[in-house]
Write a protein that binds this DNA or RNA. Structure first.
Lengths: 189, 189
DNA sequence: ACTGACTACTCACTTTTTTGAGTACCGACG
DNA sequence: CGTCGGTACTCAAAAAAGTGAGTAGTCAGT
Protein backbone atom coordinates (compact mmCIF):
# COMPACT_ATOMS: atom_id res chain seq x y z
CA UNK A 1 0.00 0.00 0.00
CA UNK A 2 1.51 3.15 -1.19
CA UNK A 3 -0.76 5.61 -2.92
CA UNK A 4 -2.88 5.05 0.15
CA UNK A 5 -0.42 6.83 2.42
CA UNK A 6 0.36 9.55 -0.07
CA UNK A 7 -3.34 10.40 -0.14
CA UNK A 8 -3.57 10.36 3.63
CA UNK A 9 -0.52 12.63 3.91
CA UNK A 10 -1.93 15.05 1.35
CA UNK A 11 -5.24 15.10 3.18
CA UNK A 12 -3.58 16.18 6.43
CA UNK A 13 -3.77 19.78 5.27
CA UNK A 14 -7.53 19.91 5.35
CA UNK A 15 -10.57 18.79 3.44
CA UNK A 16 -10.29 17.97 -0.21
CA UNK A 17 -12.52 16.43 -2.83
CA UNK A 18 -11.16 13.82 -5.20
CA UNK A 19 -11.06 16.46 -7.88
CA UNK A 20 -9.10 18.93 -5.77
CA UNK A 21 -6.75 16.17 -4.71
CA UNK A 22 -6.12 15.42 -8.36
CA UNK A 23 -5.10 19.06 -8.85
CA UNK A 24 -2.82 18.92 -5.84
CA UNK A 25 -1.22 15.75 -7.18
CA UNK A 26 -0.38 17.65 -10.33
CA UNK A 27 1.85 20.10 -8.44
CA UNK A 28 3.06 19.80 -4.88
CA UNK A 29 2.27 16.19 -4.09
CA UNK A 30 3.78 15.22 -7.41
CA UNK A 31 7.13 15.65 -5.68
CA UNK A 32 6.66 12.39 -3.95
CA UNK A 33 3.85 10.67 -5.73
CA UNK A 34 1.84 10.86 -8.89
CA UNK A 35 -1.55 9.48 -9.76
CA UNK A 36 -4.38 9.96 -12.21
CA UNK A 37 -7.74 11.21 -10.94
CA UNK A 38 -9.34 7.80 -11.34
CA UNK A 39 -6.80 6.29 -8.99
CA UNK A 40 -7.46 8.94 -6.40
CA UNK A 41 -11.22 8.42 -6.50
CA UNK A 42 -10.70 4.69 -6.17
CA UNK A 43 -8.28 5.15 -3.31
CA UNK A 44 -10.57 7.57 -1.47
CA UNK A 45 -13.40 5.05 -1.77
CA UNK A 46 -11.21 2.33 -0.28
CA UNK A 47 -9.91 4.62 2.46
CA UNK A 48 -13.45 5.55 3.40
CA UNK A 49 -14.53 1.92 3.45
CA UNK A 50 -11.62 1.22 5.81
CA UNK A 51 -12.55 4.18 8.02
CA UNK A 52 -9.27 6.03 7.48
CA UNK A 53 -10.94 9.04 5.91
CA UNK A 54 -14.46 10.38 6.21
CA UNK A 55 -16.32 12.35 3.58
CA UNK A 56 -19.21 14.72 3.62
CA UNK A 57 -21.45 15.68 0.75
CA UNK A 58 -21.35 19.36 -0.25
CA UNK A 59 -24.35 20.41 -2.32
CA UNK A 60 -23.51 23.08 -4.88
CA UNK A 61 -25.89 25.21 -6.89
CA UNK A 62 -24.19 25.89 -10.15
CA UNK A 63 -21.76 22.97 -10.17
CA UNK A 64 -21.96 19.25 -9.57
CA UNK A 65 -22.05 18.30 -5.91
CA UNK A 66 -18.81 17.14 -4.40
CA UNK A 67 -17.56 15.09 -1.49
CA UNK A 68 -14.96 16.56 0.83
CA UNK A 69 -12.75 14.13 2.71
CA UNK A 70 -10.73 14.44 5.87
CA UNK A 71 -8.45 12.06 7.74
CA UNK A 72 -10.00 10.29 10.73
CA UNK A 73 -8.21 9.34 13.94
CA UNK A 74 -7.83 5.83 12.55
CA UNK A 75 -6.28 7.36 9.45
CA UNK A 76 -3.82 9.34 11.52
CA UNK A 77 -2.94 6.16 13.44
CA UNK A 78 -2.40 4.35 10.15
CA UNK A 79 0.01 7.08 9.06
CA UNK A 80 1.85 6.81 12.36
CA UNK A 81 2.43 3.11 11.97
CA UNK A 82 3.39 3.60 8.33
CA UNK A 83 5.96 6.19 9.41
CA UNK A 84 7.33 3.82 12.03
CA UNK A 85 7.75 0.94 9.56
CA UNK A 86 10.84 0.60 7.38
CA UNK A 87 10.80 2.39 4.01
CA UNK A 88 11.69 0.75 0.77
CA UNK A 89 14.84 2.16 -0.82
CA UNK A 90 14.10 4.84 -3.36
CA UNK A 91 15.41 4.89 -6.88
CA UNK A 92 14.86 6.66 -10.13
CA UNK A 93 12.67 4.81 -12.57
CA UNK A 94 12.84 6.71 -15.75
CA UNK A 95 12.31 5.78 -19.39
CA UNK A 96 14.80 8.39 -20.44
CA UNK A 97 17.60 6.81 -18.43
CA UNK A 98 16.91 3.50 -20.16
CA UNK A 99 17.22 5.30 -23.48
CA UNK A 100 20.49 6.96 -22.49
CA UNK A 101 21.87 3.62 -21.35
CA UNK A 102 21.23 2.32 -24.86
CA UNK A 103 21.97 5.61 -26.64
CA UNK A 104 25.41 4.80 -27.98
CA UNK A 105 24.17 1.52 -29.44
CA UNK A 106 21.09 2.93 -31.12
CA UNK A 107 20.23 6.27 -32.72
CA UNK A 108 21.17 9.21 -30.51
CA UNK A 109 19.12 11.81 -32.38
CA UNK A 110 15.73 11.28 -30.72
CA UNK A 111 17.38 10.85 -27.33
CA UNK A 112 19.13 14.21 -27.58
CA UNK A 113 15.81 15.82 -28.47
CA UNK A 114 14.12 14.28 -25.46
CA UNK A 115 16.92 15.30 -23.13
CA UNK A 116 16.43 18.89 -24.20
CA UNK A 117 12.66 18.71 -23.83
CA UNK A 118 13.12 17.28 -20.38
CA UNK A 119 15.52 20.04 -19.41
CA UNK A 120 12.93 22.64 -20.42
CA UNK A 121 10.18 20.83 -18.57
CA UNK A 122 12.46 20.76 -15.53
CA UNK A 123 13.04 24.51 -15.84
CA UNK A 124 9.29 25.06 -15.75
CA UNK A 125 8.88 22.80 -12.76
CA UNK A 126 11.74 24.53 -10.95
CA UNK A 127 9.96 27.86 -11.29
CA UNK A 128 6.70 26.34 -10.16
CA UNK A 129 8.30 24.80 -7.10
CA UNK A 130 10.14 28.01 -6.32
CA UNK A 131 6.85 29.90 -6.34
CA UNK A 132 5.23 27.23 -4.20
CA UNK A 133 8.04 27.42 -1.66
CA UNK A 134 7.82 31.22 -1.46
CA UNK A 135 4.08 30.92 -0.94
CA UNK A 136 4.44 28.27 1.76
CA UNK A 137 6.99 30.19 3.81
CA UNK A 138 5.31 33.58 3.38
CA UNK A 139 7.28 36.47 4.84
CA UNK A 140 9.76 34.44 6.85
CA UNK A 141 13.18 33.51 5.56
CA UNK A 142 13.78 29.82 5.01
CA UNK A 143 15.94 29.03 8.02
CA UNK A 144 13.47 30.71 10.33
CA UNK A 145 10.45 29.11 8.69
CA UNK A 146 11.95 25.64 8.92
CA UNK A 147 12.59 26.01 12.64
CA UNK A 148 9.43 27.81 13.64
CA UNK A 149 6.84 27.32 10.90
CA UNK A 150 3.88 25.18 11.93
CA UNK A 151 3.38 23.20 8.75
CA UNK A 152 6.72 22.40 7.18
CA UNK A 153 6.06 18.90 5.80
CA UNK A 154 5.04 20.06 2.32
CA UNK A 155 7.89 22.58 2.32
CA UNK A 156 10.45 19.86 3.00
CA UNK A 157 9.17 17.62 0.23
CA UNK A 158 9.12 20.55 -2.18
CA UNK A 159 12.77 21.22 -1.34
CA UNK A 160 13.52 17.65 -2.34
CA UNK A 161 11.54 18.07 -5.52
CA UNK A 162 13.40 21.27 -6.35
CA UNK A 163 16.81 19.70 -5.82
CA UNK A 164 15.75 16.73 -7.91
CA UNK A 165 14.56 18.87 -10.80
CA UNK A 166 17.73 20.96 -10.75
CA UNK A 167 19.92 17.87 -10.85
CA UNK A 168 17.77 16.36 -13.54
CA UNK A 169 17.91 19.48 -15.69
CA UNK A 170 21.69 19.79 -15.34
CA UNK A 171 22.22 16.16 -16.16
CA UNK A 172 19.94 16.33 -19.21
CA UNK A 173 21.78 19.37 -20.57
CA UNK A 174 25.20 17.88 -19.91
CA UNK A 175 24.35 14.53 -21.50
CA UNK A 176 22.72 16.20 -24.50
CA UNK A 177 25.90 18.24 -25.00
CA UNK A 178 28.10 15.13 -24.72
CA UNK A 179 26.01 13.17 -27.21
CA UNK A 180 25.94 16.09 -29.66
CA UNK A 181 29.70 16.50 -29.37
CA UNK A 182 30.17 12.80 -30.09
CA UNK A 183 27.92 13.02 -33.14
CA UNK A 184 30.15 15.79 -34.45
CA UNK A 185 33.34 13.83 -33.82
CA UNK A 186 31.91 10.80 -35.58
CA UNK A 187 30.76 12.91 -38.55
CA UNK A 188 34.19 14.54 -38.86
CA UNK A 189 36.23 11.37 -38.31
CA UNK B 1 6.12 -2.04 -21.22
CA UNK B 2 8.91 -0.85 -19.11
CA UNK B 3 11.06 -3.45 -17.44
CA UNK B 4 11.16 -4.90 -20.94
CA UNK B 5 13.27 -2.07 -22.27
CA UNK B 6 15.45 -1.86 -19.21
CA UNK B 7 16.33 -5.53 -19.71
CA UNK B 8 17.02 -5.03 -23.40
CA UNK B 9 19.24 -2.04 -22.65
CA UNK B 10 21.16 -3.97 -19.99
CA UNK B 11 21.62 -6.86 -22.39
CA UNK B 12 23.27 -4.62 -24.99
CA UNK B 13 26.58 -5.10 -23.22
CA UNK B 14 26.78 -8.78 -24.01
CA UNK B 15 25.39 -12.11 -22.98
CA UNK B 16 23.87 -12.51 -19.57
CA UNK B 17 21.89 -15.16 -17.78
CA UNK B 18 18.87 -14.26 -15.71
CA UNK B 19 20.95 -14.72 -12.63
CA UNK B 20 23.74 -12.43 -13.81
CA UNK B 21 21.19 -9.88 -14.89
CA UNK B 22 19.73 -9.97 -11.41
CA UNK B 23 23.20 -9.12 -10.05
CA UNK B 24 23.59 -6.30 -12.53
CA UNK B 25 20.20 -4.94 -11.52
CA UNK B 26 21.44 -4.76 -7.96
CA UNK B 27 24.17 -2.28 -8.83
CA UNK B 28 24.51 -0.37 -12.08
CA UNK B 29 21.16 -0.90 -13.68
CA UNK B 30 19.54 -0.10 -10.38
CA UNK B 31 20.20 3.52 -11.25
CA UNK B 32 17.33 3.50 -13.63
CA UNK B 33 15.39 0.41 -12.85
CA UNK B 34 14.99 -2.20 -10.18
CA UNK B 35 13.51 -5.66 -10.29
CA UNK B 36 13.57 -8.91 -8.39
CA UNK B 37 15.12 -11.97 -10.02
CA UNK B 38 11.71 -13.55 -10.60
CA UNK B 39 10.64 -10.56 -12.62
CA UNK B 40 13.75 -10.74 -14.75
CA UNK B 41 13.33 -14.44 -15.49
CA UNK B 42 9.71 -13.80 -16.44
CA UNK B 43 10.66 -10.88 -18.63
CA UNK B 44 13.42 -12.82 -20.38
CA UNK B 45 10.95 -15.60 -21.15
CA UNK B 46 8.54 -13.10 -22.67
CA UNK B 47 11.28 -11.34 -24.61
CA UNK B 48 12.44 -14.66 -26.03
CA UNK B 49 8.89 -15.62 -26.99
CA UNK B 50 8.61 -12.27 -28.82
CA UNK B 51 11.94 -12.83 -30.55
CA UNK B 52 13.60 -9.76 -29.04
CA UNK B 53 16.28 -11.78 -27.27
CA UNK B 54 17.72 -15.20 -27.99
CA UNK B 55 19.17 -17.59 -25.45
CA UNK B 56 21.57 -20.46 -25.60
CA UNK B 57 22.03 -23.20 -23.08
CA UNK B 58 25.42 -23.39 -21.41
CA UNK B 59 26.11 -26.73 -19.77
CA UNK B 60 28.23 -26.46 -16.64
CA UNK B 61 29.99 -29.20 -14.72
CA UNK B 62 30.02 -28.17 -11.13
CA UNK B 63 27.12 -25.72 -11.24
CA UNK B 64 23.58 -25.76 -12.57
CA UNK B 65 23.32 -25.14 -16.30
CA UNK B 66 22.42 -21.66 -17.36
CA UNK B 67 20.94 -19.85 -20.32
CA UNK B 68 22.77 -16.86 -21.75
CA UNK B 69 20.69 -14.29 -23.60
CA UNK B 70 21.57 -11.68 -26.17
CA UNK B 71 19.55 -9.03 -27.99
CA UNK B 72 18.42 -9.92 -31.51
CA UNK B 73 18.07 -7.53 -34.43
CA UNK B 74 14.36 -7.35 -33.70
CA UNK B 75 15.23 -6.46 -30.11
CA UNK B 76 17.55 -3.71 -31.26
CA UNK B 77 14.78 -2.39 -33.53
CA UNK B 78 12.37 -2.46 -30.60
CA UNK B 79 14.81 -0.37 -28.55
CA UNK B 80 15.16 2.08 -31.45
CA UNK B 81 11.43 2.67 -31.65
CA UNK B 82 11.22 2.89 -27.87
CA UNK B 83 13.93 5.55 -27.90
CA UNK B 84 12.09 7.47 -30.62
CA UNK B 85 8.78 7.47 -28.72
CA UNK B 86 7.99 10.11 -26.08
CA UNK B 87 9.10 9.37 -22.52
CA UNK B 88 6.87 9.69 -19.53
CA UNK B 89 7.91 12.43 -17.14
CA UNK B 90 10.06 11.14 -14.32
CA UNK B 91 9.42 11.76 -10.68
CA UNK B 92 10.49 10.52 -7.32
CA UNK B 93 8.25 7.94 -5.76
CA UNK B 94 9.47 7.43 -2.29
CA UNK B 95 7.86 6.24 0.92
CA UNK B 96 10.19 8.40 2.94
CA UNK B 97 9.00 11.58 1.25
CA UNK B 98 5.43 10.66 2.13
CA UNK B 99 6.54 10.29 5.74
CA UNK B 100 8.32 13.63 5.75
CA UNK B 101 5.25 15.30 4.26
CA UNK B 102 3.30 14.04 7.26
CA UNK B 103 6.18 14.32 9.74
CA UNK B 104 5.06 17.47 11.56
CA UNK B 105 1.59 16.05 12.09
CA UNK B 106 2.67 12.67 13.38
CA UNK B 107 5.63 11.43 15.39
CA UNK B 108 8.94 12.69 14.02
CA UNK B 109 11.16 10.25 15.93
CA UNK B 110 11.02 7.27 13.57
CA UNK B 111 11.22 9.54 10.54
CA UNK B 112 14.45 11.12 11.76
CA UNK B 113 15.89 7.65 12.27
CA UNK B 114 14.99 6.61 8.77
CA UNK B 115 16.42 9.78 7.28
CA UNK B 116 19.73 8.99 8.90
CA UNK B 117 19.67 5.38 7.76
CA UNK B 118 18.94 6.53 4.26
CA UNK B 119 21.80 8.99 4.32
CA UNK B 120 24.18 6.18 5.30
CA UNK B 121 22.79 3.89 2.62
CA UNK B 122 23.29 6.72 0.14
CA UNK B 123 26.90 7.12 1.27
CA UNK B 124 27.49 3.44 0.56
CA UNK B 125 25.87 3.69 -2.85
CA UNK B 126 27.89 6.78 -3.68
CA UNK B 127 31.10 4.88 -3.05
CA UNK B 128 29.86 1.94 -5.08
CA UNK B 129 28.93 4.14 -8.00
CA UNK B 130 32.20 6.02 -7.78
CA UNK B 131 34.10 2.74 -8.03
CA UNK B 132 31.91 1.62 -10.92
CA UNK B 133 32.57 4.87 -12.78
CA UNK B 134 36.32 4.58 -12.27
CA UNK B 135 36.18 1.03 -13.55
CA UNK B 136 34.12 1.97 -16.59
CA UNK B 137 36.34 4.81 -17.70
CA UNK B 138 39.59 2.99 -16.96
CA UNK B 139 42.71 5.12 -17.42
CA UNK B 140 41.08 8.00 -19.28
CA UNK B 141 39.91 11.13 -17.53
CA UNK B 142 36.17 11.73 -17.59
CA UNK B 143 35.94 14.45 -20.22
CA UNK B 144 38.06 12.43 -22.61
CA UNK B 145 36.23 9.18 -21.93
CA UNK B 146 32.84 10.80 -22.51
CA UNK B 147 33.92 12.13 -25.90
CA UNK B 148 35.91 9.18 -27.14
CA UNK B 149 34.95 6.11 -25.11
CA UNK B 150 33.08 3.48 -27.08
CA UNK B 151 30.51 2.44 -24.52
CA UNK B 152 29.40 5.42 -22.50
CA UNK B 153 25.70 4.60 -21.98
CA UNK B 154 26.17 2.90 -18.61
CA UNK B 155 28.60 5.62 -17.55
CA UNK B 156 26.05 8.34 -18.24
CA UNK B 157 23.33 6.61 -16.26
CA UNK B 158 25.71 6.02 -13.37
CA UNK B 159 26.51 9.73 -13.36
CA UNK B 160 22.81 10.38 -12.92
CA UNK B 161 22.61 7.83 -10.18
CA UNK B 162 25.56 9.38 -8.40
CA UNK B 163 24.08 12.88 -8.55
CA UNK B 164 20.78 11.51 -7.33
CA UNK B 165 22.33 9.74 -4.37
CA UNK B 166 24.35 12.79 -3.38
CA UNK B 167 21.29 15.02 -3.46
CA UNK B 168 19.31 12.43 -1.60
CA UNK B 169 21.94 12.08 1.11
CA UNK B 170 22.28 15.83 1.57
CA UNK B 171 18.55 16.30 1.74
CA UNK B 172 18.15 13.48 4.27
CA UNK B 173 20.85 14.93 6.55
CA UNK B 174 19.49 18.45 6.28
CA UNK B 175 15.90 17.40 6.99
CA UNK B 176 16.96 15.17 9.87
CA UNK B 177 18.84 18.15 11.37
CA UNK B 178 15.82 20.43 10.93
CA UNK B 179 13.43 17.96 12.53
CA UNK B 180 15.82 17.35 15.44
CA UNK B 181 16.24 21.07 15.97
CA UNK B 182 12.46 21.51 16.05
CA UNK B 183 12.12 18.71 18.58
CA UNK B 184 14.56 20.56 20.82
CA UNK B 185 12.72 23.85 20.45
CA UNK B 186 9.41 22.19 21.29
CA UNK B 187 10.93 20.44 24.30
CA UNK B 188 12.43 23.71 25.59
CA UNK B 189 9.47 25.96 24.80
C1' DA C 1 27.41 -34.64 9.20
C1' DC C 2 25.17 -30.32 9.40
C1' DT C 3 24.70 -25.54 8.27
C1' DG C 4 24.66 -21.73 5.55
C1' DA C 5 25.86 -19.34 1.30
C1' DC C 6 26.05 -19.34 -3.70
C1' DT C 7 24.50 -20.58 -8.41
C1' DA C 8 20.42 -20.98 -11.22
C1' DC C 9 15.92 -21.03 -11.82
C1' DT C 10 10.35 -21.93 -11.72
C1' DC C 11 5.46 -21.48 -10.42
C1' DA C 12 1.54 -19.36 -8.62
C1' DC C 13 -0.50 -15.51 -6.92
C1' DT C 14 -1.69 -10.77 -5.34
C1' DT C 15 -1.36 -5.99 -5.42
C1' DT C 16 -0.65 -1.84 -7.66
C1' DT C 17 -0.65 1.00 -11.42
C1' DT C 18 -2.18 2.47 -15.78
C1' DT C 19 -5.39 3.16 -19.58
C1' DG C 20 -9.66 4.01 -21.90
C1' DA C 21 -14.22 5.21 -22.17
C1' DG C 22 -18.15 7.27 -20.28
C1' DT C 23 -21.78 10.56 -17.69
C1' DA C 24 -23.56 15.03 -16.71
C1' DC C 25 -24.25 19.73 -16.05
C1' DC C 26 -22.57 24.80 -16.23
C1' DG C 27 -20.94 28.91 -18.40
C1' DA C 28 -18.44 31.44 -21.88
C1' DC C 29 -17.26 32.43 -26.78
C1' DG C 30 -18.29 33.14 -31.33
C1' DC D 1 -26.91 27.26 -31.36
C1' DG D 2 -22.99 24.54 -31.10
C1' DT D 3 -18.88 23.44 -29.07
C1' DC D 4 -15.13 23.90 -25.97
C1' DG D 5 -13.27 23.95 -21.30
C1' DG D 6 -14.04 23.38 -16.49
C1' DT D 7 -16.13 20.82 -12.42
C1' DA D 8 -16.99 16.31 -10.54
C1' DC D 9 -17.07 11.80 -10.86
C1' DT D 10 -17.73 6.32 -12.27
C1' DC D 11 -16.89 1.78 -14.34
C1' DA D 12 -14.31 -1.81 -16.39
C1' DA D 13 -10.25 -3.82 -17.82
C1' DA D 14 -5.48 -4.55 -18.91
C1' DA D 15 -0.77 -4.29 -17.93
C1' DA D 16 2.97 -4.06 -14.86
C1' DA D 17 5.16 -4.83 -10.67
C1' DG D 18 5.85 -7.23 -6.52
C1' DT D 19 5.60 -11.41 -3.15
C1' DG D 20 6.15 -16.00 -1.32
C1' DA D 21 7.39 -20.46 -1.63
C1' DG D 22 9.98 -23.99 -3.64
C1' DT D 23 13.69 -27.02 -6.30
C1' DA D 24 18.32 -28.70 -6.63
C1' DG D 25 23.08 -29.14 -6.75
C1' DT D 26 27.96 -27.30 -5.14
C1' DC D 27 31.22 -25.76 -1.94
C1' DA D 28 33.30 -24.04 2.39
C1' DG D 29 33.45 -23.99 7.09
C1' DT D 30 32.47 -25.96 12.00
Amino acid sequence: MALRHAVLAALLDGEYSGYQLAKAFDIGVANFWYALPQQLYAELTKLEKDGLVAGRQVVQETRPNKRLFHVTDAGRAELESFAAAASKPSFIRDDLLVKVQAADRIGTGPVIGQLEERACAADAKIELLGALLRQLRGEADEEDFLLRGERIGPYLTCLRGLAFEREHRDWCRRIAAVLRERQKINADG
